[in-house]
């Protein structure tokens, strides 16, 4: 078995709430190789962010609890490391960009201070050198007038520029893996495209690996190499990006693709997936997607589908994955 750069192996996470135990992650496995981009796709509550937080070690525990599984970085299990070792992995090996840059940046420190903080505190750079490097990083993420703006505060930037600051900050320690947790959700559509282009460019130039977490299928097509689709705390489909777009092997993925508005389907009503994501305090029996699935049969209600290997690195957690792929249903 060849070693992956990062591997999530059979991860289980529960949240202990007042109303009971919510099984948020139920046996998630995925991997990331050096220099590639994996998109993790799913709607709110599917567990995509929680998995990322578990990788970063910033999951709130309690109420969260990792009950099973391993997270391997270069073959070492992050979950069994000492706190101090784990801290050193953060930022330097694996860095993260968060969704809402305004609340994710500290309001009372200048952006230059925040970008250069790790350089000063972890690499022992002098204040002047670290600030110079902060300006370079801001240039690299294409913030106009970086030199003048390095002493500005987060609230003085526009949403898109703030997200660029966030990205510059995550790049400060030259991480090998960048986790971008819905980096464009809080932004205008035009700005979204710019940020995605920037991330793709940086990943290429810096030869990082990237996990891109999103609920927007449209965002990932140009950027990702592979896609893992999550539903109710499990991976339901995993495939090469082109294969997945061309021919989804899970009804949920199919539903997501059909619900993208298309220019060539003008005048027809937009397809939607009916119903709501399940309450994970009381998950449905069998396949978690069966109450919303138009192909659901009796077996879907009684038996949880295993993750079927369809060949070519492609997997799907559907009893009828082969039929779906062949166009038989």
């Amino acid at each position: 078995m060849n070693e992956h750069l990062l591997e999530v192996d059979n991860l289980f996470i529960e949240f202990h709430t007042r109303d009971g135990v919510s099984k948020v992650i139920n046996g998630v496995s995925y991997h990331l190789n050096a220099g590639e981009t994996l998109a993790v796709l799913g709607e709110s509550g599917s567990g995509k962010s929680v998995t990322a937080q578990a990788i970063m070690g910033i999951l709130d525990m309690p109420p969260g609890k990792i009950t099973r599984g391993r997270i391997l970085y270069r073959g070492r299990d992050l979950l069994t490391m000492s706190k101090e070792e784990r801290r050193k992995v953060r930022g330097e090996e694996i860095a993260m960009v968060f969704q809402d840059a305004l609340s994710s940046l500290n309001p009372v420190f200048t952006v230059g201070n925040q970008i250069s903080e790790t350089l000063r505190k972890r690499k022992g750079m002098s204040k002047a050198d670290a600030m110079k490097r902060a300006v370079e990083l801001m240039d690299q993420v294409k913030i106009p007038g970086a030199k003048e703006r390095v002493k500005d505060y987060p609230h003085q930037f526009s949403g898109g520029m703030r997200q660029r600051v966030m990205i510059a900050m995550s790049l400060a320690m030259d991480p090998k893996v960048l986790i971008a947790d819905e980096p464009t959700t809080a932004l205008d559509v035009t700005v979204q495209a710019q940020i995605m282009d920037l991330l793709a460019e940086l990943r290429r130039d810096l030869n990082m690996a990237m996990i891109l977490i999103t609920h927007d299928l449209g965002v990932v097509a140009d950027v990702a190499d592979r896609i893992a689709v999550m539903y109710a705390g499990r991976i339901v489909e995993h495939a090469d990006v082109h294969a997945l777009y061309k021919n989804p092997a899970h009804p949920y993925t199919k539903g997501l693709l059909e619900s993208i508005p298309r220019l060539d389907a003008k005048g027809t009503e937009l397809a939607t997936i009916k119903g709501l994501p399940p309450n994970l305090l009381r998950p449905p029996t069998g396949c978690a997607f069966h109450p919303r699935c138009k192909y659901a049969q009796d077996i879907c209600v009684t038996t949880t589908p295993p993750l079927l290997d369809l060949g070519g690195g492609r997997t799907s957690a559907c009893h009828f994955a082969k039929e779906l792929l062949d166009g038989r249903i």
């Binding site: 801290r87 050193k88 953060r90 930022g91 940046l105 309001p107 903080e117 790790t118 505190k121």
Partner: peptide
């Protein structure tokens, strides 16, 4: 509990800082 604390933690800063 603020978001920026999560960011600071994910930068690999010590808990003390």
């Amino acid at each position: 509990r603020a978001d920026y604390v999560r960011t600071a933690t994910s930068k690999g800063l010590t808990r003390f800082r």
